[in-house]
């Protein structure tokens, strides 16, 4: 066996071991971020393949888990970037006229109501989390992608704009529409209860 071939076999063996050790945590993380089982599986698989292909870049002094999660996080962000670039937006549903009338004032039936919440740990409530996920998944794909990119990457608005190659006004208009819908959905399904 040549030295090069032996090294490749060695890499395979190490990655196989990592698959056993880290798949569960990585899958749970990918699912937590995407709330899509099939997608989470694909992202984890792609991560291990990328790790195998770029094994030479792995610095032995760093933790494999840290390295794998950094690849996985990049894959998750790439997914949302791609989702953002292939928008499917229904303007009738997504337009401001859903919320505001011709005078640019709130439509009576969409006016924000008072939310009775003093709960500072609302995310600890699994029922609320379900509703939140449900409402997020009702957003058009590119809006959801923009929301996730913003909150996944902890980036400043201007950096996201650079990343997505959009203007700041594009970005906050997307966030505006996404938040209008998300707020409305949460009000109807949770805070109005």
């Amino acid at each position: 066996m040549s030295a090069a071939k032996g090294a490749v076999t060695g890499h395979h063996a190490i990655i196989r071991e990592w698959v056993q050790l880290y798949t569960n945590g990585m899958y749970a993380w990918a699912y937590h971020k995407t709330t899509d089982k099939a997608l989470a599986e694909d992202l984890v698989q792609d991560t291990f393949l990328a790790a195998l292909q770029s094994f030479d870049k792995f610095k032995q002094e760093s933790q494999p888990k840290t390295w794998l999660f950094s690849i996985l996080n990049n894959k998750i962000s790439d997914h949302f970037r791609q989702q953002f670039r292939h928008p499917v937006v229904n303007e009738t549903e997504g337009g401001l006229s859903f919320f505001f009338d011709e005078e640019d004032e709130w439509r009576k039936e969409r006016r924000p109501q008072t939310w009775n919440t003093t709960d500072t740990h609302i995310l600890d409530n699994p029922d609320f989390r379900k509703i939140l996920q449900h409402c997020m998944h009702l957003l058009p794909g590119n809006w959801l992608a923009a929301v996730k990119l913003k909150y996944l990457e902890e980036k400043e608005g201007k950096d996201i704009c650079q990343d997505l190659q959009i203007t700041p006004s594009n970005f906050w208009q997307i966030m505006h529409r996404a938040k209008l819908h998300l707020r409305n959905c949460l009000e109807n399904n949770w805070f109005k209860k």
Partner: peptide, 26 residues
Amino acid sequence: HHEHEHPQAPKEEEQAALKEKITNRL
């Protein structure tokens, strides 16, 4: 998006199937 404590754990059979799938792909 920044909580690390509560990611949903996959079911055991899902874990095993996924590990096998990845190993085969590798």
